[in-house]
């Protein structure tokens, strides 16, 4: 399968923060969720991918080509949605569209106005007068109106209400029906990703902790719950993280090591969600 996005050993150092040896890849036709706590390096990685910042070492490949080779052509095939307000705030939606559309060779006005109608975006309103959700819808309409093959989204759901978040996820699921399109979606709201992502890449303190298939990831870890009396047995399985709760002991560990505890009758084993995986891994790295 063809990789649409590939980062190989990408490093970038700043004062007090660094991306270190960041590597992962996304195949054509899939959605990758890029997760990590605030300040983990998600936006910085995206800025590296878009060549907004220059990497110190490693390489970024887009559509199988080195991104420095012909970035202008490669960007024709990318749609971007950023968390910040990058559009012209004092201009109307229509004027913003008139400025941006000529940059794209495959811009499709029919598609754009279809999204504008579907998302209920007022064309004559200034960007600064739109709500956060409508601004995001506008950015999405722009990203989807030039037949981009890769949609890069930086925290598109942060600050949005649950209704619009659900709408956005439905739109993305619609987009991905075209097997030539891929979506790279960074967020710290992991519940959004469980519904749509095929792959999850987790970044923490500028380093990739894992990058794997969603199903495989959810099967790889378990949460073991049991009474305090079973603490020695649980500890002997070398959990990644362990905490005491009002009901007893709760441990986060790989599924493989949890197997030896299944014979214990008081032990309860649960499949964690993405939020819990992120929480326990962050906790274990910090302790």
């Amino acid at each position: 399968m063809e990789n649409i996005l590939e980062l190989n050993h990408v490093s970038k150092a700043f004062d007090g923060f660094a991306l270190e040896d960041v590597s992962f890849s996304l195949e054509k036709g899939y959605i990758m969720g890029f997760i990590g706590p605030n300040g983990a390096g998600k936006s910085t990685t995206i800025r590296c991918m878009m060549d907004l910042i220059h990497i110190d070492s490693g390489n970024v490949r887009l559509f199988g080509e080195d991104f420095r080779h012909d970035l202008k052509s490669l960007k024709q095939r990318i749609g971007f949605v950023y968390d910040q307000d990058v559009f012209f705030e004092d201009l109307t939606v229509d004027k913003n569209k008139r400025i941006i559309s000529p940059f794209y060779e495959h811009w499709d006005d029919v598609v754009f106005y279809r999204y504008i109608k579907e998302f209920n975006i007022p064309l004559n309103k200034k960007i600064k007068d739109l709500s956060k959700g409508t601004k995001m819808k506008f950015a999405l309409a722009i990203a989807l109106s030039h037949h981009a093959e890769l949609i890069i989204m930086d925290e598109p759901t942060s600050g949005l209400d649950p209704v619009f978040r659900k709408e956005l996820l439905d739109i993305l699921l619609g987009v991905i029906q075209d097997e030539n399109k891929s979506i790279f979606f960074s967020t710290h709201i992991t519940t959004d990703l469980e519904k749509i992502a095929d792959y999850i890449t987790f970044i923490l303190d500028g380093k990739i902790v894992f990058s794997s298939e969603m199903e495989e990831l959810l099967e790889n870890y378990v949460i073991v719950k049991g009474p305090r009396s079973l603490e020695p047995e649980i500890k002997s399985a070398q959990p990644i993280a362990l905490k005491e709760t009002s009901f007893g002991i709760e441990a986060f560990m790989p599924s493989s090591t949890a197997r030896k505890l299944t014979s214990k009758t008081d032990i309860h084993i649960e499949r964690p969600n993405l939020d819990e995986i992120m929480y326990y891994i962050v906790k274990s790295k910090k302790s």
């Binding site: 878009m50 960007k75 024709q76 910040q84 307000d85």
Partner: peptide, 13 residues
């Protein structure tokens, strides 16, 4: 910064 982020995310050198 935002202006340049927008411009450089578009297909331009």
């Amino acid at each position: 910064k935002m202006h340049n982020r927008l411009v450089l995310s578009l297909p331009v050198e």
